[in-house]
């Protein structure tokens, strides 16, 4: 009797496999689209080359066009009309003329006041940043693009200012590219932070509140600067973004 039942089940299953079942439906994670343009080897910023120019009222001018007439103080003058977007956060180096040449504004200046052209900023930065300069020369610091084998093609050593803004040289936060999809079943609770116990964990608690306070103060300061700048632009009737 049960042999017949088994046979029937077997037959039914075989029939279902043959007709009813399709190919396995394997769930795939949603694709993160990253196009070719997003992964170009561009530098973080475009530094000024030698003989920088500025567009004033639609006309191309050099720095000297204005500075021939206007000298400026040692510190950034808050009643400035130009360079409002420039702000300094370069440690103790808070002096325009530490780096800019007083006589020729189309040039930079070394400590002795000798002119250094824009585009050769490494010669200027190296005066203070010795170890970094040493590493940059040997290739351990900074970007190298192009060919590792110089006999086959050009090798480009990026200048300091291709990545660092000389007025606020610390690196900004960068946008994160998408995380891998394939192992999403591991939840974040299982990854990473569980080792932050013991001394490291206690240290983290200590600095956390400090950081939060600092971040809050920073945000306030940035907002205030921003607001003051916006007010100044408004007062002067300058359209934002116009140079």
């Amino acid at each position: 009797m049960h042999q017949t039942v088994l046979t029937a089940v077997f037959l039914a299953l075989a029939g279902w496999f043959l007709v009813g079942s399709g190919p396995a439906d394997i769930p795939l994670a949603e694709r993160n689209v990253v196009t070719l343009e997003m992964v170009q080897p561009t530098t973080l910023r475009t530094p000024l080359g030698p003989n920088p120019t500025i567009i004033v009222g639609g006309v191309k001018k050099t720095c000297q066009t204005c500075h021939e007439i206007w000298d400026s103080g040692v510190r950034q003058n808050k009643s400035l009309v130009q360079h409002l977007d420039t702000w300094l956060s370069h440690g103790e180096n808070d002096n325009c003329l530490s780096c800019h040449n007083r006589e020729d504004r189309g040039m930079l200046s070394d400590r002795e006041g000798n002119p250094i052209p824009f585009g050769d900023s490494a010669a200027l930065c190296s005066q203070c940043h010795g170890p970094t300069w040493r590493d940059w020369q040997s290739g351990a610091h900074g970007r190298t693009n192009g060919y590792w084998d110089k006999s086959k093609g050009e090798q480009v050593r990026q200048q300091c200012v291709a990545c660092h803004d000389p007025h606020h040289p610390a690196f900004p936060q960068l946008e994160t590219f998408p995380a891998p999809n394939t192992l999403r079943q591991i939840t974040d609770e299982h990854a990473g932070d569980h080792v932050l116990e013991g001394p490291i964990g206690r240290f983290r608690e200590v600095i956390r509140s400090e950081r939060e306070a600092k971040a809050e103060a920073n945000a306030k300061e940035a907002a205030a600067k921003r607001a003051a700048l916006d007010a100044k632009y408004k007062e002067l009737g300058i359209e934002r973004g116009e140079k």
Binding site: M38, D85, W87, E175, P178, K214, A222, K225, R226
Partner: peptide, 24 residues
């Protein structure tokens, strides 16, 4: 590199506003 909490460039003039342009 220096403690990045010591600086806050977000919202400062000339700083790029970072928004995620891709991915989920």
């Amino acid at each position: 590199p220096q403690d990045s909490s010591q600086k806050s460039f977000e919202g400062m003039p000339g700083m790029p506003e970072i928004t995620r342009t891709h991915g989920a």
